[in-house]
Each structure stands twice: as structure tokens, then as C-alpha cells.
Design a protein around this nucleic acid. Sequence first.
DNA 1: CGGAATCCGGATGGATACTG
DNA 2: CAGTATCCATCCGGATTCCG
Lengths: 235, 235
Amino acid sequence: MKERQGYGQFCPIARASEILATRWTPLILRELHFGSTRYGDLRRGLPRISSAMLAQRLKELEQAGIVTVARAEGAGPAYGLSEAGAALFPVLEAMGRWAQAHARADMTKDDNLDPDLLMWNIRRRANCGHVPAGGHFVAMFQFLGVPVPRSRFWLLFTGDGVEICLRDPGHEVGLQVTAHIRTMTRIWLGHLPLDQAISSRDLLLEGSRQTIREFSDWFALSALADSCDADGPRS
Amino acid sequence: MKERQGYGQFCPIARASEILATRWTPLILRELHFGSTRYGDLRRGLPRISSAMLAQRLKELEQAGIVTVARAEGAGPAYGLSEAGAALFPVLEAMGRWAQAHARADMTKDDNLDPDLLMWNIRRRANCGHVPAGGHFVAMFQFLGVPVPRSRFWLLFTGDGVEICLRDPGHEVGLQVTAHIRTMTRIWLGHLPLDQAISSRDLLLEGSRQTIREFSDWFALSALADSCDADGPRS
DNA sequence: CGGAATCCGGATGGATACTG
DNA sequence: CAGTATCCATCCGGATTCCG
């Protein structure tokens, strides 16, 4: 593997740029930071990366001492962040803060809306400590503004965790969430307060009064959501 | 100009990466942040960028609303940062901090040592309010470890500012600074305390006792220098 | 001379197919 | 599941040229 050409500068920003100012790298680090460890999970959080690119970046980052790889016997490699890699998070955080403040509209443009990716992110943040005694709970998400085959997702909470299903898993649906994909994404990002979307009828919650109240116990906004004032009820 | 392909993600880090995770972009923003406005000044702070690349990036950043261009009559365009561009500085700062903490050794590897670039940076930070009554002052820097034609620089302080000369400007040299290029760079970055370099004789100051004392009045470390404990007197 | 535009060869990234 | 291999499109670096 040939070393990427550097900038030839002693400046610390230049050195950091040799790692971070590279296509896909910040997003790979984001995935690792938020807990993905498997190659397949990384690909799921980065749907448009090519397999070759991901493999190449992981190798580069391992060599740079940013990413660690644990190769086990029975399972595939597990990726993680070294101390130096974990220390890059403030940079990612600053990037996220900048975009939330200065590029908000771009984030939810049509090409960036992706129900699979949104569900994958929601699943990761869903608090799975809230499974009722019965052992499982199902929340169904229904999105408007997306092709039919990608419009319905079931979140299956069990004792083991939360699973995304693309077909009805068969159990009773305890809660149904209906919204336009952009509305749901804007809520997720903190651009639109949940209660405002509910009262303006842009988001529909269906289920028992109790279940709807519990919704906020397991549904957490993106870790990068910003707590802003509402900028209007319509997207 | 075709729009660079994005990541197709609503995540704010992805949006920021579309701008920052691009070769040269963080360094161009660094130059603009530290006060360069002219195309030629930018090139001087980025010696290895190609002219075409710089022109392209400036145009992209202008379109993205990050960079402003003031096209005047008599002079060439003056580049600057928009509010959104200025707001990116915390990201650059976080990158710099990370490198100072986790990639210190790489920064002063041979390929990154560049006396022209170092002098250009020193000049930008030199406090030109300290010109003696006579109207000018000359400090000569002499570096070891670099080819002869790049080894001596004169900093000419006048009422107008500070100028870098590659040949003796003729005035009396009030101060002479001699050090290995790596030593000087490490001092500049805050990796090596100035007084430690002086007492270990790795840095030589020649001039009147008064002039040497005043040195610290106009010589400022890099804005990105970190205030660290010494990690040893030798590089 | 500053501020680019153009052209070209090599490096990098994306899409798809294939493998253990 | 976790990658390689391959091929093609785009990007980048460097030199040259252009323009005021």
C-alpha cells in the first residue's frame, strides 16, 4: 500500500488534514465512534461507499494508528478506534456543529433523505431497556415520500436488543409512526421539535395512550441533533 | 463546474465532510483565516498546491458560500471568509489540537521541514509594532540542515510592516538567529521551549543584550503552538 | 508579474463481479 | 460475511500557455 502524498507542511492542521481531508474518512470514523464494529455494519451506515474503498480506508487508518482491528477465531474482524482515533471526535463534533448552524437546509435535500439509513440510525439510538414484560414490542414506521418497498419498517424490541424488519414480524404492532421522510429526518436532526410535528399533524402516532407516552422513553434524537428553536412547522 | 458527488447522507458530519474532506481545502481555509487575501499569498502559504487546484478550490468555496471574493478595479481579487467560512475555524482548531497531541513527531519529519514556509509564517506573526526609532530593523535567520540557497533569510522591519529578504538588504543586522531547521520549527510549534533551546545551545541568538531581550517582544510562536512540557532538548 | 485556463499522465474513487 | 479483482471515470499534479 503506497503512502498517500502529504502536504509537505509542518503545520498541525496539515498533518490532521492528511488523515481527515480524505473522502469517506470522517464518515468511517463517525460510524466507529457511534459504535459500529463490523465491516457489514460500517457498510450499512455508509450505503454509498464501495466495498473496495471501505477496505482500503480501514487499512490506511489501521496503519496510521487510528483504527484498531481485533481478529478473532470464530468471527470476522472487529474494528474500533485507538486512543488517537477516539481523540478525533472533537473534530467530528465541530464539523457537525458547523453544519447544523450553517448548512441546515442542505442536509435534508432530497438526495440526502434515505429511510434505510434513518432507521439504522434510529435503531442505534433506540433505548432497548424499555421492553415491556412480554419480552418484545413492535413499533412500525411508515414514511411518505419514498418508494413503496422502502416505506415501512418494523422496529422489533426484544430482550436482546432492537432489530429492523422490512416485513411485518408478526407480533402485534404496539405503536405506529407515520410521517414524511423529510419530516422524520428533520425531527431526528433536531430541526423540528417532535411535539410541534405532532400538533401540526405532520407526524402521526398511533397506539395506546400509554404506549405513545412511552415513545419518548426509547426514541432519542440523533446524538448530533441540535436543540434549536423551531424554524417553522412545514418542511 | 460540476458539483462534486456528495455522500447522500442527512448527517451534519457528512455535509461538513463534503466541504472539508477534500484535498487542500482545510489548508486554504487556514490561510484565509490567518489573514492571507491574495492569490499569490495563498500560494506562498501552500507551496505544493498547483495553481489550477487553488483556483478550482477557491471557486468551489465561493459557490458554497464559504469564501468571499472582492474584485476591485486596480488590483486583483481579494479573497476572504464569509461568516459561514469563519465559523469553520473551530474545526480547524480541533484538527490542530489533535495533531499536536497525537501526531507530534510526524509534523517535523524531514519532508515537512521548509524554511521558506517557516519564514513566511514567522513573518505573519511577527509583531511589527516594535520597530526602533531609526525606522527599520533587520533580523537574520540562519538555518542548518537545508541547502545553502535556502539557509539565510533577513526579516526587514519597517514602519510599513515586515518583509522577507533572501539577500542581505544592506542595513545593519541587529539580531542573528541560528538553529537547525528542525529545532526552529519545533520551537515555532511549541514542541521545544525557546529558553530551553537557548540554554542547550541548539539556538543561537547574536546581538546586543537589549536586542536579544526585545526578541521575545516581536517573535510570537505559531497561533497553533501548544504549550507543552519540554520533551527533551534534542530533536 | 499576478491570476488564472488548458492539457496531459498518473493517482484516486466508484461500480460490479467474484472469491474463500 | 468480509473482503479482492477488475475496469472505467474522475481527480490531482505539473508544465505550459494565456491575458491584462
